[in-house]
Design a protein around this nucleic acid. Structure first.
Ligand code: ZN
Length: 470
DNA sequence: ACTGCCGGGAA
DNA sequence: TTCCCGGCAGT
């Protein structure tokens, strides 16, 4: 029950630990730290910045305005359950994993853009963009660069005799992916960090892509943007009730998201942030730590159902009317067992969409927090990567590739859950390996985050969240 | 030593 | 019914 908690550690290579229960304005910054661990329960305005850090783990349960930025960090893991306004940005980071149960999300991710003249192809992984460049522009064969990490496909290609020319035709762009399913509370949060010193040719016109797309009655807003000049292309799903309007100006960008059809009062989110200059040197390995820039972009969020930022329960409390709670046909099997979870109130269910060049959105659904999450069809696996990698996306394996794994669990039992995953969950020690390891909540979250286990696991019963496998 | 979880039991 | 745990099989 405290306010203005601040913890800072620099160049710590031991465990940095910060816990805040019912706290507000928690701020943790770890520079060059390892094994940073932050747990914030029922907290507001949590901000965690970890630069050049490793093994960062952030768990925020029932928290609001959680913000995690890990610049040049490895193995960042963020678990935010029942939280609002979560924002995760991992610039130049690797193995970022975000899981949010009943959370409202916005996050940024790194994508790879082709810089060939008049081509602005975006890809999720550097191997993808490189193979695009090779095939499309260089007329070479699409080979996958294999490093020590990937043992999967390292069979046929002897890539030693190759002047990696494609290395020079792509750049890394930071892209914001924001999603929200709630049409009334907030729509979308966008963040942007243009590659300022990038080698992008001709005017550095970067794409802004605004998508409104929804497989459900609720509405998603996905905004991907990067760059300084912008093209805005809006794809609008006709089945959607509210579209988003985005206005922006640089370098102080101002987004106004609202619905043109009247309900602007409830559906408007104003967001202001500065896309500060992160000089980003384009190297052959994007992961290289070059610029210790301080990631200071400021975000101001005005929500119409205004709430006092102070107080532990503050921002949470008035998001009270949520379609999710009234069981509004979220998926095939509507369930409203959420009401069981204490002090949850309205959770802004969201699912994180990901796409590269409009490629895919993978949505699945794991169980709930609720105690009734047992009867779930065993149709989905926490390790979703198999399917994803099987499809269009390469699970990039070059050193610099940034992985972003988002898993988002939304609702109850019968497949109401949403889980999005892309990227191999490469384990630190070894490269990719075979076999399906069955990782249940206990192992997945660890003993110290027992509160995030599914109920069954907590009762030492058969796990209901990670069914199948084994 | 650790994970997953059945069966049993207390509240 | 919810919650907890001894103990066991499997790794
Ligand atoms: Zn579980």
């Amino acid at each position: 029950m405290s306010y203005a908690v601040t913890a800072a550690s620099t160049a710590t290579h031991a465990a940095t630990l910060a816990c805040g229960l019912h706290s507000s304005f928690v701020r943790v910054s770890g520079l060059h730290s390892s094994f940073v661990r932050v747990s914030v329960l029922h907290s507001s305005f949590v901000r965690v910045s970890v630069l050049h850090s490793s093994f960062v783990r952030v768990s925020g349960l029932h928290s609001s305005f959680v913000r995690v930025s890990g610049l040049h960090s490895y193995f960042v893991r963020v678990s935010v359950l029942l939280s609002y306004f979560v924002r995760v940005s991992g610039l130049h980071s690797s193995f970022v994993r975000v899981s949010g149960l009943h959370s409202s999300f916005s996050s940024t991710r790194t994508m790879f853009q082709c810089t060939w003249p008049d081509c602005r192809e975006l890809a999720e992984s550097c191997s993808a963009i490189e193979s695009h460049i090779r095939v499309t522009h260089l007329g070479l064969s699409a080979r996958r660069r294999s490093r020590s990490l990937s043992s999967l496909h390292s069979s046929s290609d002897s890539d030693s005799e190759d002047d990696h020319e494609e290395d020079f035709y792509w750049t890394e762009v930071e892209v914001a992916v924001a999603t929200n399913v709630d049409p009334t509370t907030l729509n979308c949060v966008v963040s942007n960090r243009p590659p300022q010193t990038s080698v992008i040719h001709q005017g550095s016109v970067s794409p802004v892509l605004v998508t409104t797309n929804s497989p459900s009655p609720l509405s998603y807003s996905t905004v991907i943007c990067s760059g300084q000049q912008t093209n805005i292309s809006a794809m609008k799903n006709p089945a959607i009730k509210s579209t988003s309007i985005i206005t922006m100006s640089n370098p102080l960008v101002k987004y106004t998201l609202g619905s043109p059809n009247g309900q602007s009062a409830a559906a408007t989110t104003l967001l202001t942030f500065r896309a500060d200059s992160a000089s980003h040197a384009k190297g052959s390995t994007p992961l290289r730590i070059t610029s210790p820039v301080s990631p200071s972009h400021h975000t101001v969020i005005h929500r119409t159902p205004a709430s006092s930022p102070l107080g532990s329960g503050g921002p949470r409390t008035n998001l009270s009317t949520h379609p999710y709670l009234q069981g509004g046909g979220w998926t095939s099997s509507p369930r409203a067992s959420l009401s069981k979870s204490p002090s949850v109130g309205p959770s802004t269910v969201s699912s994180v969409l990901k796409f590269s060049g409009g490629q895919y959105v993978q949505v699945s659904s794991p169980p709930t927090l609720s105690h009734m999450d047992m009867a779930r069809p065993p149709h989905e696996d926490p390790e979703y990567r198999r399917r994803l990698t099987g499809s269009s996306l390469l699970s990039s394996s070059c050193d610099g590739a940034s992985y972003l794994t988002c898993s988002n669990e939304a609702l109850g039992a019968g497949g109401g859950k949403v889980r999005v995953t892309s990227s191999p969950k490469a384990s630190p020690g070894r490269g990719g390996k075979r076999g399906g390891e069955s990782k249940k909540c206990r192992k997945y979250y660890g003993m110290e985050q027992k509160n995030e286990w599914c109920t069954q696991c907590r009762w030492k019963k058969a796990c209901s969240r990670f069914v199948n496998s084994s």
